[in-house]
């Protein structure tokens, strides 16, 4: 029962935090520097790992699908399969998982450590809302960088598939055919659906990270627990939301 209460409490706190943060939205022009700093931390530094991961996901997808589709005589559709899978599903989900593991965990650790060392209390006594100074810049940054990361990740994933299709002799699909199939069936709507998903995932990951960090009490051990909790909650949220958003967008 305590566990269930804890989950509801965490959920409620996250919603209240989001509300308080966005109530400070009129002050957004004053926090542009912090937004750009957070955008750099969350976006630029995550980009290499997004690129590597999506490249190999595209490559593996093409390899697996290529051999199967070849047996059915439909290898010309590999581009469609890889393109759709990455744009609608794997791109947004993988970017969100990387954000949770790389950015969310760091944000939780930073805010939890600020809470434990009294920095958050110091902000409160100075009448500087932590939601405005610490949470809003991170939420805005993640809203800005997630679609960019996803688009770049998608493109790299598609190229990963194309390289495998061309390079693996048993598949033997030329890039022209691969990209033609990709363009033929992949619509702007598919890409937009993927970006909507990515945006929601990114926002939720950052909200969970900030909320978990700010709710930490205790010492260094609790900071570690908070980071674990933040990543686990984020992963559960990403996969649960993925189902419902996919259903809603169908």
């Amino acid at each position: 029962m305590n566990r269930i209460n804890e989950v509801f409490e965490a959920f409620g706190s996250a919603l209240i935090l989001a509300w308080r943060a966005f109530r400070s939205l009129p002050s957004a022009p004053r926090i542009l520097r912090r937004v750009s700093e957070q955008g750099y931390l969350a976006g630029y530094t995550t980009l290499p790992i997004v690129a590597i991961l999506l490249f190999f996901i595209g490559a593996v997808l093409a390899l697996q699908a290529g051999n199967t589709l070849r047996d059915f005589g439909a290898k010309q559709l590999i581009g469609t399969l890889v393109g759709e899978s990455i744009a609608r599903e794997l791109g947004p989900v993988m970017v969100a998982i990387l954000l949770a593991g790389r950015v969310g965990s760091a944000v939780t650790a930073e805010l939890a450590s600020m809470r434990v060392s009294g920095e958050i209390d110091a902000l409160v006594t100075m009448n500087i809302p932590p939601e405005r100074m610490l949470v809003l810049p991170r939420l805005l940054a993640v809203l800005l960088i997630t679609p960019v990361l996803t688009i770049i990740g998608n493109i790299i994933g598609w190229f990963g598939g194309a390289i495998v299709c061309a390079g693996v002799s048993t598949i033997g699909v030329e890039p022209e055919m691969y990209f033609q199939a990709l363009k033929q069936y992949l619509t702007v709507q598919d890409i937009m659906d993927g970006l909507i998903k990515a945006e929601i995932f990114g926002f939720v990951v950052m909200l969970i990270a900030c909320s978990t960090g700010l709710r930490t009490r205790g010492g260094p051990r609790e900071i570690g627990f908070a980071v674990t909790k933040s990543v686990v909650f984020s992963l559960i949220a990403i996969l649960t939301l993925d189902y419902f958003i996919t259903k809603a967008l169908d």
Binding site: M114, S117, G118, E119, D121, A122, T125, M126, I128, M133
Partner: peptide, 25 residues
Amino acid sequence: ALVFQSGALFNSLSVYENLALYPLE
């Protein structure tokens, strides 16, 4: 104003930025 036992200075900010934060914000 509360002077914390640990100081509770903002570790990512310099001394100047710590002091200027309140009037700036």
